[in-house]
Design a protein around this nucleic acid. Structure first.
Length: 495
RNA sequence: GCCGCCAUCGUCUAGCGGUUUAGGACAUCGCCCUCUCAAGGCGGAGAUCACGGGUUCAAAUCCCGUUGGCGGCGCCA
């Protein structure tokens, strides 16, 4: 049993998106790989934007992907609970550490208004300096503070950031990254409303929850020196940091709505399998020396390592995800696929699609079409012709197969309708023999026999292997459909 | 503007100084298989390893610079 503890700490301000899941996945894989613990912590300190609905969506998405957490919401370990930062705030956890910092003179109240601070930053920027808070309130005397308070000015708490020297982050993925401390300002660690800011709450919680490795997107890399200073202020050991390269959209810009689906649940709705999404995401920023593509989730848990994570950003490629989904679908047994399809119908509220459909027939039909399924949502269209009362003939089938060679099509369908009535062996093999014999007997090509039968029975030019399809449909239905086709297209013909 | 990160086929990547005519996968194209559509098999095209300097007998691999992309610079996380 290792002592490794990692966490995924999303803020519930929207759906769980692709980048977020990738971070969650890598943390989870790392925990599983090392026998460590995976913790889920909800960072809901943005009161304006955080919503319960959003929290629920994140939890649901994690559960769908089966990225189960060892500790977190619904699985609270007393020693570390709660796992929601606002609840932790209410428990006074952060205030205690704020007080400690103030007592040590490592933090101080700042009475400047947001507008005033904004001015400072603008001025610094116009002087070609990094935009910084100017430290006005850094060395206020007690009397001066009282004076400001008397004026009714609310205060935030700022951290006294060291202004000398450099901070070196030894990133597990990137190596040493240096930051000049003079470029950092006294950032806010507690807002005027008493809620801690991200950079503070994150450190306190990671410390309290005994997080050993912080694996996160590299959009956090410049936050890291600030957080490191807080660890130092308390004299705490720091976790190891590892910053993952970002996932970008097709145009190289940050992944967003205009690149298509960004929410995990949208992928679920489309009929992607969790294995496909996980396998695909694992390949975005991680690889093995042999550049292998296909992994089961167990294999991923076994193979994953932070050392093999890449440093350069990657572009999200929907085409490859789609291919991977097909691969995963093909690796399922017909029973598994059937269950997956039923789950998908329930999830999307589309159960009525299969009303009246025979479940065994559906299972067989899915099995027949498996190689063609890219998304679970493809299934209804691929198999619905098995179940309809009257075959819907698509125009192409009628034109290409019935009208082009009307004479032979008519002959074939009429013969088939008549003879198959008496066919006792309705297995695919027997049916194929029947069709081939018919072709020889009438002196026409097998194509001219097979295609009309397919069109008559399914209404389409494309479909599963013809004779397996007929076997699965069964004699009654096949004969009935052949009769109907004769009636509809060839009734007037003499033969 | 300041700081940081990054830079190999269209895309994901392998490569960690010589074994490289830069390998694999997706996408794309062609052929084969074949009752259709897929799936599968085989093959093609696709990368002057962003550019420019070094270091070295030898560089995609190490160093510096340039350019470009991205990220951060909030009482957002």
């Amino acid at each position: 049993m290792s002592d490794i503890r990692v966490r995924f700490a999303p803020s519930p301000t929207g759906d769980l998106h692709i980048g977020g899941v990738r971070t969650a996945l890598f943390n989870w894989l790392f925990a599983k790989n090392s026998g460590g613990k995976f913790i889920l912590r909800i960072e809901d300190t943005d009161e304006a934007r955080s919503t319960d609905a959003s929290t629920q969506v994140i939890l649901d998405a994690m559960k769908w992907l089966e990225l189960f957490w060892d500790e977190g919401p619904d699985n609270e370990i007393a020693q570390y609970a709660p796992y929601y930062q606002m609840k932790r705030k209410e428990a006074g956890i952060y205030q205690k550490y704020i007080d400690e910092l103030i007592a040590k003179d490592l933090a101080y109240p700042c009475y400047c208004s947001p507008e005033e601070v904004d001015e400072m930053r603008k001025k610094a920027q116009s002087d070609k300096l990094p935009p910084k808070y100017d430290g006005s309130c850094r060395n206020l005397t007690i009397a001066q503070r009282k004076e400001k308070e008397a004026l009714g000015r609310g205060a935030v708490i700022r951290f006294k950031t060291p202004q000398d020297g450099k901070t070196v982050l030894n990133d597990l993925i990137r190596g040493a990254v240096e930051f000049d401390n003079a470029l950092l300002d006294d950032f806010v660690i507690m807002k005027a409303n008493g809620v801690p800011t991200y950079n503070f709450a994150c450190v306190i919680d990671d410390y309290l929850m005994k997080i050993t490795h912080v694996l996160r997107g590299d959009d956090h890399i410049s936050n890291t020196p600030r957080q490191m200073h807080i660890y130092d202020a308390f004299g705490w050991d720091k976790p190891r940091f590892a910053h993952l390269a970002m996932i970008l959209g097709s145009d190289g810009a940050r992944l967003s709505k205009r690149h298509g689906h960004t929410s995990v649940l949208e992928y679920r709705k489309e009929g992607y399998l969790r294995e496909a999404l996980i396998n695909y995401l694992a390949l975005l920023g991680w690889s093995t020396p042999d550049s292998r593509q296909l992994f089961t989730i167990d294999e991923l848990k076994k193979e994953f390592s932070i050392e093999r994570c890449g440093v350069s950003p990657s572009i999200f490629d929907p085409a490859k995800l789609l291919w991977l989904n097909g691969e995963k679908i093909r690796s399922k047994t017909p029973e598994e696929l059937f269950d997956l399809f039923i789950d998908w119908l329930k999830y999307t509220g589309n159960e009525s699609i299969i009303d009246g459909w025979n479940k065994e027939l559906l299972k067989s039909a899915i099995a027949l079409e498996r190689d063609k399924i890219k998304l679970l949502k493809d299934i209804p269209h691929l198999v619905n012709f098995f179940f309809v009362e009257d075959v819907a003939f698509d125009e192409e089938a009628v034109k290409k197969v019935f009208e082009k060679s009307k004479e032979s099509a008519s002959l074939v369908i009429k013969e088939a309708a008549q003879r198959l009535r008496a066919q006792s062996d309705f297995s695919a093999d027997a049916l194929e023999k029947f069709a081939r014999d018919l072709a020889v007997e009438k002196g026409i090509g097998t194509g001219k026999v097979f295609h009309p039968i397919r069109a008559a029975v399914s209404g389409r030019t494309q479909g599963p292997s013809l004779f397996h399809m007929m076997e699965v449909m069964g004699k009654d239905k096949v004969v009935k459909r052949l009769d109907a086709a004769v009636e509809k297209f060839f009734a007037a013909d003499k033969n």
